[in-house]
Simulated assay, not measured.
Amino acid sequence: MGEVVNVAVAFLVIIFIFRWVTTAGTLSSSSSLCALNTGDVLGFRPKNVTQEMIDAVTAVFPDIPPDNIRYDLLRTGNVEQTTNKILERGFLDAPPPQYYTVYPRQSPAPAPPPAPTPAPPQKETLISRYGLHDRLAAEPSILESEIGGKAVWEDSPEKREASLKERKARMILAARQ
């Protein structure tokens, strides 16, 4: 019986040594070491995150920093959960300093110089639309009682239209002051 125990112990020692040697060989590869260190550094096993996932959340919430989005996606691995967290809380937690050792901040690519664009068309003002430039300089001030004035019903449609235009002009000039 004693020899069976010795054989069993020797067998377990050989298995232990074999596993230790094969595991040590695997740890020397950079990808396994990086994955192991990433989990150790962050304190959780990160999920796979693509740039499309980050872009999808950034498109909906442009005010949330991309590092916060990536950190939350590394934890959840799900765009919907990250989006729901932003909707519920209004923000995402900032990543801890250890995050930046694994995922260094990328300086934004320099923006290309803006292409020369033609001068934008001038917005039309009410003064220019109603042709009141000459009246703007001529009338010193308009009293509040004169702004709208009391409308008098004119006999012809042409007189009513002229009266309406005059009242509009006075209101525009008064608003300008």
Results as ranks from 00 to 15, higher is better:
Ala137Ser: 08
Asn68Gly: 02
Ala138His: 04
Leu132Arg: 00
Pro113Ala: 11
Val60Met: 11
Pro110Arg: 06
Ser30Tyr: 08
Lys150His: 08
Asp67Leu: 02
Pro104Tyr: 01
Tyr71Gly: 00
Glu161Met: 12
Leu73Cys: 01
Arg135Pro: 01
Leu87Gly: 03
Ala94Asp: 10
Arg75Phe: 10
Pro118Ile: 06
Phe61Leu: 01
Ala151Thr: 14
Ile86Tyr: 03
Lys85Ser: 05
Ala138Lys: 07
Leu33His: 10
Pro110Phe: 07
Val57Leu: 02
Arg170Val: 01
Ala151Pro: 10
Ala151Val: 14
Ser163Ile: 02
Phe61Ala: 01
Pro113Glu: 09
Leu87Tyr: 03
Val9Glu: 13
Glu52Ile: 04
Ser141Ala: 13
Ile54Arg: 00
Pro113Thr: 04
Tyr103Met: 04
Ala24Leu: 10
Ser141Leu: 08
Tyr71Met: 00
Asp134Glu: 14
Ala175Asn: 12
Ala10Ile: 03
Ala59Gly: 10
Leu143His: 11
Pro95Met: 02
Arg105Leu: 11
Ser156Met: 06
Met1Thr: 14
Asp55Gln: 11
Glu144Met: 12
Arg176Asn: 15
Tyr103Asn: 04
Ile127Lys: 00
Tyr100Trp: 08
Thr26Lys: 15
Leu164Arg: 13
Ala94Arg: 14
Asn78Thr: 06
Pro140Cys: 07
Gln51Cys: 06
Thr22Gln: 10
Thr125Pro: 00
Glu88Phe: 14
Ser107Asp: 14
Asp55Cys: 07
Tyr103Val: 01
Pro110Ser: 08
Asp63Thr: 10
Gln81Asp: 14
Gly148Ala: 15
Ile15Trp: 09
Pro157Gln: 10
Arg135Tyr: 05
Tyr100Glu: 03
Lys159Arg: 14
Gly149Trp: 01
Asp40Cys: 13
Arg176Trp: 08
Gly39Asp: 04
Leu27Ala: 05
Arg70His: 12
Gln122Met: 08
Trp20Gln: 11
Asp72Cys: 12
Lys159Pro: 02
Ile54Ser: 02
Gly149Tyr: 01
Glu3Ile: 06
Gly25Pro: 01
Arg170Met: 09
Glu144Asp: 15
Thr22Val: 09
Leu132Phe: 00
Leu27Val: 09
Gly149Glu: 05
Pro157Leu: 09
Val13Ile: 15
Asn68Gln: 15
His133Glu: 15
Leu126Met: 07
Ala111Cys: 05
Thr22Leu: 07
Thr23Ser: 11
Arg160Gln: 14
Ser107His: 11
Ser107Ala: 15
Thr76Ser: 11
Ser29Phe: 13
Cys34Thr: 13
Ser32Arg: 15
Val7Phe: 12
Gln81Asn: 14
Tyr103Glu: 00
Ala137Val: 04
Ile127Pro: 00
Glu52Cys: 04
Tyr71Trp: 03
Thr101Asn: 10
Thr22Glu: 08
Ser29Asn: 14
Leu27Trp: 09
Arg75Cys: 07
Val21Thr: 09
Val4Met: 12
Ile17Thr: 11
Gly39Val: 03
Thr76Met: 03
Lys123Asp: 10
Lys168Tyr: 09
Arg129Glu: 07
Ala10His: 07
Ser28Arg: 14
Val21Cys: 05
Pro66Gly: 05
Ile86Leu: 05
